[in-house]
Amino acid sequence: MTGARTAPNGDGPLLDITGLAVDFDTEDGVVHAVKGVDLSLGAGEILALCGESGCGKSVTAMSIPGLLPRGARISGSVKLEGRELTTLPARALRDVRGKEISMVFQEPMTSLNPSFTVGYQLGEVLRRHEGMSRGQARARSVELLDLVGIPAPDRRIKEYPHQLSGGMRQRVMIAIAVACSPKVLIADEPTTALDVTIQAGVLDVFRDLRDRLGTAIILITHDLSVVADIADRAIVMYAGRAVEQAPVTELFARPRHPYTMGLMKALPAAVTAAGVGERPRLAEIPGMVPTPMTDPDECAFQPRCPRAEPDCTASRPILEKAVSESPADGHTVACFHPLEGEGR
């Protein structure tokens, strides 16, 4: 559907999400956090989910393994290898979470328990989900820490989280997440709190997992340079919807949605290539993101869009094949007046 490689069994993508919508009932009314996301992920694929704060990236991610908080109303379909997850009973969903889909979050310190050693926390996962003995779990833990690039893993497993640096803790979280060889790893801003030198190492770990274990990865980030570095394909979200989807080189070479173009042009890097210290004006996107409390039947970006026409308020554009011929397949955009692909 959206250009994902097919799963090994040949029938459809590994993960297939259609019409995903999530509402929250709050004191102030209903928050429409996600209003319709279609997403497919092929085996061994790295898919980036990007867009600005509040556009619904984390809520989309959390809804995949059924981790939304109470009070969230989810609709649409989430299928893993053809099996519907949104209707699974809690127990079955817990198994999916342990073994088939796992998650890594932004802040590694809060996700690790400070009072247990790294080895205990990793071993616990292996004993519970894989039924390993203490000795087996220990040996496997050392292997896993080695896999995520932690030096001297046999010494490290005896340490507590506070004895590790931020980058190390994030690697431990990744080791825990891949302990049961999940098919899908969902990483929500996994490097946002890390230094660039450390981030580069963690991104290498993701690449390595994909190459060696064939793990498919959904990487959530607001950082377009991280997308450029690691993703095969990317989805740009705006106000709860996917507005553009394409293979990464195609997306950066020929952004079609005016919002995607706006994001790329607003980056300082868009103007510094010519010379350092000139400080030409950066392109701004005027206006603000719409409130998630309403959902009018129109293009959500239209009030801020330089290409808006009267028809943009008449109905809402859906994610469709980009109009003109493009060399790369599977470029879709939700816009009535997309850019012609003239490049950045």
Binding site: S165, S225, D229
Partner: peptide, 25 residues
Amino acid sequence: ALLSAAPVPDPVEQRERSRVVLGGD
């Protein structure tokens, strides 16, 4: 190391860059 580790928002350029990898803690 710092400059080489900071990714640039261009997949073609980014994937061709070489990086100074830092070892150790």
